[in-house]
Structures are given as structure tokens and as C-alpha cells.
Simulated assay, not measured.
Amino acid sequence: MATLSGKSAFVLVLVTGVVVPGVMNYVLSVVLGQQMLGRIVWTLGFGMMIGVIWYGWLRPLDFKGPERDPEEAERKVKD
């Protein structure tokens, strides 16, 4: 079985999270006449995609700035 790279997995999750709920929304809303159920399915599917992207790719990122060397900071204050 082939493994997916990080970019490929991200694109697969993104496309699946938009296409599958969108098609289900169309089928439920237009074909079967269940507009509210179609909206619920689309919202839950899209929301789950956002959650997977956050958990898999955004949560692990470390958004800290670079740490300053205390000695360097003291030298700049003295100058």
C-alpha cells in the first residue's frame, strides 16, 4: 500500500471535505427535496474537514517567536 505525503494527504482531505458534503447536499436538497437535511449534512461534513485540518496540520505548529539570548539583550541595553 502506498503512503501519502503530507501535501497529498492535505489535498485529499481538503477535496474530500468539500466535494463529498457538496454532492450529498445536492442529492438531498435538489434530488430528494430535503433542503434542511442537505444543509445539515454539508455543514457537518465541511466542519469535520476543518477539524481534521486543524488537528492534523495546524495544531502541531509552534507559533512562537525566536528566543533571545539574555547576554545579547543586556549588551543591546548597555549600548
Rank of each mutant, 00 (worst) to 15 (best):
T3D: 05
L4Q: 12
L4A: 07
S5V: 04
G6F: 15
K7A: 08
K7H: 13
K7N: 08
K7Y: 15
S8L: 15
S8N: 11
A9I: 12
F10H: 07
L12R: 13
L12C: 13
L14F: 14
L14T: 04
V15L: 15
T16S: 13
T16D: 00
V18P: 06
P21F: 08
V23T: 09
M24S: 08
M24W: 12
Y26A: 15
L28N: 03
V31E: 00
V31Y: 04
V31H: 12
V31I: 07
L32T: 00
Q34C: 03
Q34E: 08
Q35Y: 10
Q35N: 00
Q35A: 10
G38H: 08
R39D: 12
R39F: 05
V41I: 14
L44A: 15
G45L: 08
G47F: 06
G47D: 02
G47I: 01
M49E: 08
I50R: 04
G51A: 15
I53S: 02
W54D: 11
Y55P: 01
W57L: 04
L58C: 12
L58G: 09
R59W: 10
R59L: 13
L61V: 12
F63R: 09
K64D: 13
G65S: 05
P66Q: 00
R68Q: 09
E71V: 07
E72I: 09
E74N: 05
R75Y: 05
V77D: 14
D79C: 06
